[in-house]
Write a protein that binds this DNA or RNA. Structure first.
Lengths: 192, 192
DNA sequence: TTGCTTGTCTAGCGATGCTAGGATCGAGTC
DNA sequence: GACTCGATCCTAGCATCGCTAGACAAGCAA
């Protein structure tokens, strides 16, 4: 039995290596550079090995997305935990969200732009994605205002942040005024 | 001279055909299906002909984006022109924007998601893109509120709509409550 | 008629995601 | 310790992608 266990361990370790390498390569050179050949060479295995772990490139993106969602949830919670006052907490959340998107563009894309074959906003949505939304909801639900569903409010606030994040990074919004945009969003959307 | 003119006319006509066919194919089967081979076959010419009009696939996407931006500007202006009251005008704008995105997903992607090799938010930004932003600004500038730059406000409102549009279409937001999201956005962001 | 420009097509290059089928290695049995 | 056999991995290849070189034909000028 111990032999099988060792093999399983090694296999799991290799899977982590694939995901980590894909993420690293994507952050360095963009997702277009994450080809199965390039990825295989970096992990020092042949291409078909990738397909014994994942159905295809899509699933690899999905794996990076799940890992990233977990980190993003943690980042949001860490940024909001020690802040007093709902208004300032929401502002901290917004900054943390945009900061994560700017610092991890490839991971952000994997979660929110690319097709990783994951289910969103459904029962069978993977736990890390549900939890990332929950992290937003915990903070944003406080400022939804009377008569407004906290979930709906969180969706709208999140969508706004997503719009700012993606339009800024693709060069469609000039990056200089991000902080002022955040302030405007928080001031108008959040009811304190 | 008339021979050259006729040739120029035919050439321009063929260029329109390429753009229209690319757009049609993209709306029918998605941008991934818009391959140079598929596109060439549909216009009944060989692949290299495409490259005598455009540098590559990117420029074709860019051409679709410019055409789409012009249409979107017109759609927004048409939807807001006959509406009384700034609040209702903004609501009409938001609905028109999201409606355009939902009805022309491929064109919307060409404008706001894909890389068409176009410059955004700069001096050399193509006129159709500037005008599309101007169409938003004309309506949204009215409700920016005191002390808030109309351009900045327009960017933020636009980013929010963009977030709702993209997250909804990629299945990350359930589509049922779009109208309620629009109302929330308009109520909170617009100062009437 | 002859030569030349202009326009188009055939064929092909390197790269992509993915897979079939053979080789190799090591665990378990005698 | 030798052998069998299944698990594991790699080589080689398929179809397709964006893009381009070079051959070929059509039509204008001399």
């Amino acid at each position: 039995m111990s032999v099988q266990e060792r093999k399983q361990r090694e296999r799991a370790e290799r899977e982590r290596l694939i995901v980590a390498t894909a993420r690293e390569l994507a952050e360095q050179q963009g997702w277009d550079a994450v080809t199965t050949r390039q990825l295989a060479e970096r992990i020092e295995y042949s291409q078909p090995v990738l397909y014994s772990h994942f159905r295809g490139k899509r699933e690899i993106i999905g794996a990076v997305a799940l890992q990233g969602a977990t980190e993003m949830a943690a980042a949001v919670r860490a940024a909001t935990a020690a802040v007093d006052g709902p208004r300032e907490r929401v502002a901290a959340l917004a900054r943390a969200y945009l900061d994560f998107a700017a610092r991890n563009p490839a991971v952000y894309d994997a979660i929110f732009q690319l097709d990783g074959g994951l289910a969103y906003a459904q029962e069978d949505t993977p736990e890390p994605l549900k939890d990332a939304f929950a992290a937003l909801l915990e903070c944003l639900g406080e400022v939804a205002g009377d008569g407004v569903d906290p979930g709906l409010f969180t969706e709208v606030f999140w969508a706004s942040l997503h719009g700012v994040a993606t339009l800024t990074r693709s060069g469609r919004l000039p990056p200089e005024y991000t902080e002022r945009r955040v302030e405007l969003l928080v001031d108008r959307l959040a009811v304190v």
